[in-house]
Design a protein around this nucleic acid. Structure first.
Lengths: 222, 222
DNA sequence: GACATGCAGTGACATAATCACACTGCGGGC
DNA sequence: GCCCGCAGTGTGATTATGTCACTGCATGTC
């Protein structure tokens, strides 16, 4: 069990509170492999899920068969959709898939409800997470509605490799889903970046040669 | 005071519960004129707001100065952003403006927090609302990313006038904000609809002549 | 009437999405 | 090894949208 797990459990279900201690015992820990489908569109939601370590991307399949990534849930975070579905007892409107091996806490609905009523700090955690994911979603609407593809692509690559040169492992199709655009557009844009010496592309792989220049492209607000 | 207000107050703060009764006394009712700015980007959030009657649109101003409408809050609903900002004590990431004269309940932060811990039914209401607005947002991401402007515009007009012929009062700029596109695009598309005899346009007004045909345009999934 | 202002129309151009199809690297089966 | 299949990629043609620059038009104010 990772240190994170213990810390989170201790924080929410401290030893000195008998009620929370009891609730804490019903929390399970799971480790999911990369690519595991955590929930599908239409599934009923039965558990509150907290990602302790790893990354889950939440995406939706449009009528035309295209995918957009809505947001990611990473270390110490939870998913807005899960939370609201859990309480309103609606089914999932999107799907969640692990990007990498992911460690998560699974809190049954009943336990979640009790903890929510009992502990203000738990409530605060839950809602703060809601706010953050919500902000991600709003940002996404703005990006897709107004953002230029070159800037968005550059930003995404920089985000994934940091400020040091390195490689990002993704197909053009995956990148397109991240950005809410089409594969061809990504292919062409990558070509442009490559011609400018910012990156090198190989099958399923993008090598970042000049993160600073890339960051500059990302930052140029039109 | 409208019937709705009494009903909502009675539902959340019933007479037979002394604690909730006390909390209920601190809830205020306000009537806001059309076009009133309920909250601005960057404002701190101090109250939980429930729209009893009317409509508030929540929108965001992008870096380029363009506006998108994220969703609307109407009769009996609340705003996701308000809720999560209130609990996580962050500032508003968007702004809210009344479309029409709007009657609302204003619940101070402290009262909201207490009620949330005390009443499961109140909690359920709060989160169910979160889920609905969230669904709106997801839909918006899909629309903006994949939707065709003609279909979205047609759908929007139909939504606003119903299945009977009638008039929608909005400038092209307003329509563009609703759809997350540019004014010129709306102007051109309206011209096309007009040429096809679906609508007639006048300054600040769109007259719906053939709602059925318009609905057909809206429904044609690509 | 002169002017300011907000709204709408339009052409030219840039960017992005879509469609159609060719090409390529790689792994599995033989 | 060789062939094949397939996911991944490249590219041109076409259409849809977004952007820019500017004009015209209605309305209100002085």
């Amino acid at each position: 069990m990772s240190d994170n797990t213990s810390a989170i459990l201790e924080q929410w279900f401290p030893r000195d509170d008998v009620v929370l201690q009891q609730l804490g015992k019903q929390v399970q820990r799971v480790i999911l492999p990369a690519g595991h489908v955590v929930f599908r569109r239409g599934d009923a939601c039965r558990n509150y899920i907290v990602v302790v370590r790893g990354s889950v991307r939440v995406q939706t399949l449009s009528a035309g068969g295209r995918e957009v990534v809505l947001y990611r849930v990473t270390d110490g975070q939870t998913c807005v959709i899960t939370t609201s579905c859990l309480i309103s007892e609606e089914s999932y409107p999107a799907e969640g898939v692990t990007d990498v091996e992911t460690e998560a806490l699974v809190i049954p609905q009943a336990v979640f409800n009790e903890a929510l009523g009992y502990s203000e700090s738990f409530r605060r955690f839950v809602f703060a997470n809601q706010g953050q994911r919500l902000g991600d979603l709003i940002q996404r609407v703005e990006d897709v509605a107004f953002g230029r593809v070159d800037a968005r692509l550059a930003r995404h690559l920089v985000d994934r490799c940091g400020s040091r040169p390195g490689t990002v492992s993704a197909t053009h199709q995956q990148l397109a889903s991240e950005l809410g655009t089409a594969r061809e557009v990504v292919s062409r844009q990558l070509k442009v970046f490559e011609k400018d010496g910012l990156i090198a592309v190989r099958r399923g792989l993008v090598e970042i040669l000049d993160p600073d220049a890339l960051a500059r492209v990302a930052g140029e607000d039109r």
